[in-house]
Design a protein around this nucleic acid. Structure first.
Lengths: 109, 109
DNA sequence: CCCATGTTTAACCTATTGGTTGAAAGTTGG
DNA sequence: CCAACTTTCAACCAATAGGTTAAACATGGG
């Protein structure tokens, strides 16, 4: 599992965040990911490697084409980490459980 | 207002995240922030500058001592950005527990 | 079998990052 | 005033990041 280090580092680049936004719509081939950006395909390829290392996307080769797919699970740790600051005064598991029990009664995913 | 770039970049370093964790407890002087780390005070001073630029902390000088204060609001933009990925609006409790066990092994506040 | 297409690799460049040490600057107590 | 304390600055260094171009690799179609 990718570390918070790599996930946050991957998210710190605007090109990579834009790529993630695009992949939110649908899976895409590398060439199509690169198309809207004013940089070389090689640069985009590197960005995709970074995103893959962070676990934020996965890449599957079918034929000549490598498809990129969003993997939102990797964002979960980062999101949780932030919420421990943004929404809770301290990291208090009991309070968090109480909050969840009240707020998300059927959540079990 | 700090950009997502700077906020995520600031969060990508484990020393800086540890500092934020410490400041969650209480405001601290620079020297006290540095104490648990095995690096120079100057290095910590730089980390604090990065965190300040990202808006994640603020620093106020009182006498000789510069006090560091957590500014959790700065995480809001990043949090909002993440929530645009609808998949994890709802925090998974199991994931949260596993995350806490891994990230904060000895803290059970 | 060729050739075009899709993607990565290699080599390179520059800027930035994260660390060091040592000196400097501001502040306060005795 | 002076010495001690707190913090930053300056110069430096090695490693990494993000980009380039050109070549190489991989695959599918005619």
């Amino acid at each position: 599992m990718a570390s918070l280090d790599t996930v946050f580092a991957a998210l710190s680049d605007p090109t990579r965040r834009a790529i993630l936004q695009m992949l939110l719509e649908d899976d895409m081939a590398v060439t199509d990911v690169a198309e809207p950006f004013e940089m070389s395909l090689a640069a985009i390829s590197k960005h995709l490697t970074v995103l893959t290392s962070a676990g934020l996307i996965s890449q599957e080769k079918r034929g000549r084409v490598k498809w990129c797919k969003l993997e939102p699970d990797a964002l979960r740790d980062a999101s949780i980490w932030m919420q421990s600051f943004g929404q809770f005064e301290a990291v208090n598991l009991d309070a968090f459980e109480a909050f969840l029990a009240k707020e998300l009664p059927e959540e079990n995913a």
